[in-house]
Design a protein around this nucleic acid. Structure first.
Lengths: 225, 225
DNA sequence: ACGATATGAATGAATG
DNA sequence: CATTCATTCATATCGT
């Protein structure tokens, strides 16, 4: 078959880091602040796949997302949005794969609602090869920090900051930083929200108040959901 | 640095290569890791580039991918995902590279103006043309032939218009992205509500379908999720 | 032998 | 949901 794929691992190296984005670290070359994206640990992936394949979870709602992320938090830092995106992507990619390989596009429309819950995927066909729920590294590894209790605790400052300068050209860069700003974590004294929530996201139906029409609204935000 | 994890593996050993990888001959021998990754043959690359530069294809959709891969299959083994990735990567790297080449303003303008490929979308206009506006010049790249640029070409109609801006999407990105910025934060010592995060997401409602039956999964936190 | 580069593959994050 | 973007990993190849 095909290449295969594997998913991640090498916990050894990354793992350690994964736990906390400490915020400091990096900055090797550009000043991009580290925390870029969530790096799921093997255990987190294992669990997510288990939910997906064995429990048929495909599009968890807010409550479920909370539970899941809470559960996964013990294996590493994670936020609700990560869980949300994970399911969305996993599902989307599975379908996409199907669409590319299928001969009749028409068929694609059907089968949408399927919730196969077949046990473990095993032997997938092309593409992703889906899950192989098994960690490659038996022992060591994931010694992720991330204390089981609350979440963030290390980010000293991370948050926004300067821009990337290197590639950026003003505006753009700034925008990007905006996105990150949510990770600012409060740790400590200032409060600002210690865990902030991602309010109203992915609207489409609701949360229009958000920025739909009044994107500028964010200045006075807080009315949010 | 940085936590990274991701794929990485090597599982190879598969031996899938077999089949016929076409005339590329690259992976002919070697029983070992043969199938590592798709190795496009020169003909395949020629065609892909032709589509990209002369036809403006940048992000083919599923149907197009199927057609393209079917067509390329006569020159060697190939799958839909290869085509998909090829376009994605080609486009991304082109953009990425271009991000720099603009040190000198004067030069920049000239450079940027490059040729907007186009050859019309033709046919059913399935092609989104979306970003076909910004074409780019070939140049670097492997020594593959790919004469491209045939002759004439292009009426340069560049529809669309503005916004894409010289540097491409730089400007575009700046639109609405403050989603998470809504860190409403509670300011203040007390945490607003607790720390539940990201409320309301998952618009469209729904997503309970599977849940009903497997509600048990989440009702209890540690048990099974 | 490296180090640099080109490029396939994978996947988190967004957007529409 | 489908699509797209950005990043990063993994490798093959090439240059010195």
């Amino acid at each position: 078959m095909e290449p295969q794929q594997q998913q991640q691992n090498q916990a050894a190296t990354a793992a350690a880091a994964a736990a906390e984005d400490g915020g400091s670290g990096k900055s090797s070359y550009l000043c991009r602040q580290s925390s870029t994206r969530w790096a799921p640990t093997t255990d987190q992936i294992r669990i997510l796949k288990d939910l997906y394949y064995n429990n048929g979870v495909r599009s968890p709602n807010a409550e479920q997302i909370q539970r899941i992320s809470a559960r996964l938090r013990q294996y590493g830092k994670i936020e609700g949005k990560n869980v949300f995106y994970w399911f969305q992507n996993h599902k989307a990619r599975e379908r996409q794969k199907k669409r590319f390989t299928s001969s009749s596009p028409a068929a694609a429309s059907a089968a949408v609602a399927d919730v196969p819950i077949h046990r473990a995927a095993v032997g997938n066909s092309v593409w992703k090869t889906e899950d192989s729920v098994q960690a490659k590294y038996p022992s060591y590894s994931h010694g992720l920090s991330c204390p089981s209790s609350s979440s963030s605790s290390s980010p000293s400052m991370v948050s926004v900051g300067h821009m990337v300068g290197g590639y950026g050209y003003g505006a753009v860069t700034m925008e990007n930083n905006f996105r990150e700003c949510s990770i600012s974590a409060g740790t400590g004294s200032n409060n600002i929200g210690h865990n902030f929530q991602w309010a109203g996201v992915t609207p489409q139906s609701q949360s229009y108040y958000f920025f739909d029409k009044s994107k500028s609204s964010f200045t006075d935000e807080k009315t949010d959901i």
